[in-house]
Design a binder for these strands. Structure first.
Lengths: 237, 237
DNA sequence: GCAAATATAATAGTAACACTATCATTTTTG
DNA sequence: CAAAAATGATAGTGTTACTATTATATTTGC
């Protein structure tokens, strides 16, 4: 427990000096560059977490940050682009956490295990980036991220690099798998199945429990995906 | 090949005499009960497949079926309920296909393999229900089904039974798993991971191929999930 | 075959949403 | 302190998501 707290403190201190970079083509004006921009980020995270992305509007957001719709539109073309920003931020942040979690770990299997744990377990601890609540942001990823990429505009948004953070993370973990088993045929499928799947399972455990096997007090979701992964890569047929 | 065609003919003949039942609480008036209702179903499937659910509106639908918004509202409260109807219909149809596919197959493992194949492979063949194009409907399930249940109203809709078809299908396949390995801890998680995962992989292979490992001409998606399942249930630790 | 019941069409209207435009005011910067 | 940039205030347009009303078909029971 003390080790965990120390680790989080170290993380937070380092995070205090770094910043997560999001593809410039997603926004009109960098929200990290001003107080208003940061308020847009922090309050949109609160609001989307509270009322859901469908009910969220720039008008409602303008009221709670005591600003105007027109001002918000100077940062983001529309609410969909704002969601893309939040998801990109999240994946860049996860990649950072991943690199941090496996640095100096020599054993490839241990590196993979730590990676799976990181992407499948629920975010419980907020970092120290004042305008981003990572717990709420991770809830948004669980409930709303499909709305970010399951659109007819996915091709155009992919072209401007809106999903590169997600793809980089998948690639990193796929590389770990290939390091352990160079003959494994489906590393990307396995990793994207784990990431998307664990989001679904978190959602199901809260709202459609018949679709899951989550037991109170157990870490069933990371345990299930860890087991699945090890069985997949250890048994080459 | 001839066996496949015969099978499909038999299927279609039987489907000609049955009808898929959708929970009555999802609609205001049964769309199967009138010509207008059937037109609403068939054209909404075409339109959602074409322009996506976000761009789809009752006004646009009214124009192409030469009717009015008000008339459509007599069948469905709103477009979200229509999407729930289509997804419920799909899961009921899949359950029917599942029962048909494993009837008279004695070997439990073979029953499971056929089930996995059914839920993970792409629908290629349209049935003979004139107002439902199953290929287009399955595309809608792939691209839009998350919008049906990842909402703030999921709890209420779950109460009225809007997802019971999906849950029944998951339960059926979970039962097959438990029949083969009664000690397996995560049957529901495994099945919902397979179903949601294969939808994602079909979408990714078309739009975000870096997240998958689909190879032209190979049935990578069913192969991957079949392998994953067998490894999961055969290796009890 | 006709009256009654029901379904659909036609039309209109409201509140909210998704923006865009313009201009005034405040804040920042050189 | 002047110029530039950011923000606020206000207004306006077209669309969406409905609801209401009344007229016209169509179906059904007798």
């Amino acid at each position: 427990m003390i080790v965990l707290l120390l680790y989080l403190q170290v993380m937070n201190q380092i995070l205090g000096n770094i910043s997560i970079n999001v593809n410039q083509k997603i926004y009109l004006k960098d929200p990290e560059s001003s107080d208003l921009g940061k308020k847009i980020l922090s309050e949109s995270i609160n609001m989307i977490d509270n009322i859901g992305f469908d009910e969220f509007t720039f008008r409602k957001l303008a009221i709670v940050i005591s600003s105007t719709e027109a001002s918000i539109y100077r940062y983001f073309e529309n609410k969909h682009k704002l969601l893309l920003y939040l998801t990109s931020w999240y994946w860049a942040w996860m990649e950072y956490k991943l690199v941090f979690a496996i640095t100096n770990i020599d054993c490839p299997r241990e590196r993979l295990l730590r990676s799976i744990k990181l992407v499948t377990e629920k975010i419980q601890q907020d970092g120290n980036i004042p305008h981003i609540n990572e717990i709420k942001l991770s809830n948004i990823l669980i409930s709303e991220s499909a709305k970010a990429y399951m659109t007819k505009s996915v091709g155009n948004e992919n072209k401007i690099g809106a999903f590169s953070g997600y793809k980089k993370l998948v690639q990193r973990i796929s590389d770990l798998i290939i390091e352990i088993n160079p003959t494994y045929k489906y590393p990307h499928m396995l990793v994207s199945t784990i990431i998307e799947g664990s989001h679904h399972q978190h959602f199901f455990s809260d709202h459609l429990p018949r679709l899951t096997d989550v037991v109170e007090g157990e870490d069933a979701i990371p345990a299930f995906y860890t087991q699945l992964t090890l069985q997949a890569i250890d048994n080459v047929q």
